[in-house]
Structure formats: C-alpha cells, structure tokens
C-alpha cells in the first residue's frame, strides 16, 4: 500500500514520537538519576519563565474582565463578573494560555538547544563521557517541564486573578475581600483539580515534543532552526488536543 509522502511521514513521525515517549519512561525509572541537572532545568524552565507567564496572565485577566463586562451588563448580572472571570481563568484560560506561552518559550528553546547539541556532537560527547545523554538531557527536561508547568499555571492563575481584580475595579469598586470571596465561592474542586491535572500533561507534551524534535534534529544550522520551529508548532497543537481530551475525560467523570 502506497500512502502519500506527507501522510507517511506524519505516521512515521507519530510512531517515532511514541517510541521516544516510551524510551523516556524506560529511562526515567532506571538509575542513575540526574538530580542536579533536573533541579537546574527546573530553575531554567520554571523560575525563568515566571515573568513571561506572569505578564501574560496579568494581561489576560485584565482583558478578559473588560471584555466580559459589557455582555454581563446586558444580562444584568454584572455582579457575577468575578465568578465568571474566576471560573474561566482557573478552568481554561490559565492552563491553556500558560501552556502556549510555555510551549513558545521552552518548547523552542529545548528544541533549539538539543538540536544544536546534536549537530555539534555534544550529545555524542556526553555519551562518550560516560553519560547517558537521554537521561541527562531528555529525562531531566521532560520531568522539569512536567512538574514546573503546573506550578507556573498556578502562579499564572493567581496573577491573572489579580489582573482580573484590577479589571473589575476599573469601572466599579469591589473590595479585594468581596472579590476573592466571590471567586472562590463559585469555584469547586471540579474546576481546580482537572485544570491542575491537565497542566501536567501539557507540560509533559511540551517537554517530550521539544526534546524529540531537538534530539532528532537533522544536520546543519537549518535543521536546528527547523526543529525549534516544529517543536513549538507541534507542542502548541498537542496542548489543544490534550485540552480537548481533558474536557471529555472530565465530562466523562462528571466533574463538569
């Protein structure tokens, strides 16, 4: 059976990505554990992304509030603004926007870093130096993205909610106490837990795709650029696909 070239490439790549993911799980459970590098990657991936995520989250919270207000006024439920904004930020906007920003920043940097390491034989050099480059480079990075993105999402949510609070206060006056009472009164575990859990998957997907693209980068500087680029594209797409799956799974468990 002859499939069109791009279809075959797509299926081939999906297969390679699955194999890569499988290898990640195999390698991650085996010693030795690259703890120092993992912590270092957590710092780079998590802490250093905070300003970007915080700024985006702040703006999203503010803009969302200002955009929602006219519609809510139309329905005469302006007082529900904090509840509405809170739920949209915690459930959807926070995780997805943070994950997309994260994919843009970290997915591309991992793709480019591993790509250039591959091209300049740094990965081979590691292997020769008695280091499993997969463990040292891939496992640490994927673990870091998986564990750091949820924390970024949480902090992003917090900043975003603060932005929304300022947004609420642009045209009306609401005390911070009333605001957070309204926000948290309308949140339930069914809103927070699925959003928190799915952000682990977002982080994992971004890490795996970034590493996969970088690790399998073709020779030459052009290859590095291409792997960085496709890492962002594929990772962002994965975020949306996972989001779709997540909403269906939460729906299945009756958490919506």
């Amino acid at each position: 059976m002859q499939l069109p070239q791009h279809t075959r490439n797509f299926i081939l790549e999906a297969g390679e990505l699955s194999r890569f993911t499988g290898r990640f799980f195999r390698e991650s459970v085996k010693p030795r554990y690259e703890v120092n590098e993992f912590i270092n990657q957590c710092f780079i991936v998590g802490y250093k992304s905070l300003p970007l995520v915080g700024l985006t989250g702040f703006i999203m919270g503010l803009v969302l509030t200002m955009q929602l207000r006219p519609s809510l006024i139309d329905y005469g439920v302006e007082s529900e603004l904090p509840a509405m904004v809170g739920i949209s930020i915690v459930r959807e906007i926070g995780p997805v926007i943070t994950a997309l920003i994260f994919a843009g920043k970290i997915g591309s940097s991992i793709g480019a870093e591993l790509g250039s390491m591959k091209v300049t034989e740094q990965i081979d050099a590691m292997e020769v130096s008695g280091t499993n480059p997969f463990k040292y480079l891939v496992v640490t990075r994927v673990m870091a993205t998986t564990l750091m993105l949820p924390i970024l999402v949480l902090l992003g949510d917090a900043i975003s909610l603060y932005g929304a609070y300022l947004g609420v206060n642009i045209k009306a006056t609401t005390s911070f106490h009333l605001y957070y009472t309204q926000v948290f009164d309308n949140l339930s575990f069914g809103d927070v837990i699925p959003a928190f859990v799915k952000s682990f998957f977002f982080g994992f997907a971004i890490g795996v795709v970034g590493c996969f693209k970088g690790y399998n980068s073709s020779k030459g500087t052009e290859g590095v650029g291409r792997s960085a680029n496709s890492a962002v594209v594929v990772a962002s797409l994965m975020v949306f696909i996972l989001d779709l799956i997540a909403v269906q799974v939460t729906d299945l468990f009756g958490l919506n």
Binding site: M117, T120, V128
Partner: peptide, 16 residues
C-alpha cells in the same frame, strides 16, 4: 570509555 578519549570534529564543547 573512560580509557578512550574522543576529540570531536566540532569540539562538542557544552555551550551552556
């Protein structure tokens, strides 16, 4: 491998 040194064509110094 500890007993074998390898000098890479592109040096392979770790940029980071």
């Amino acid at each position: 491998r500890v007993r074998i040194g390898f000098l890479f064509q592109s040096n392979a110094l770790y940029d980071s």
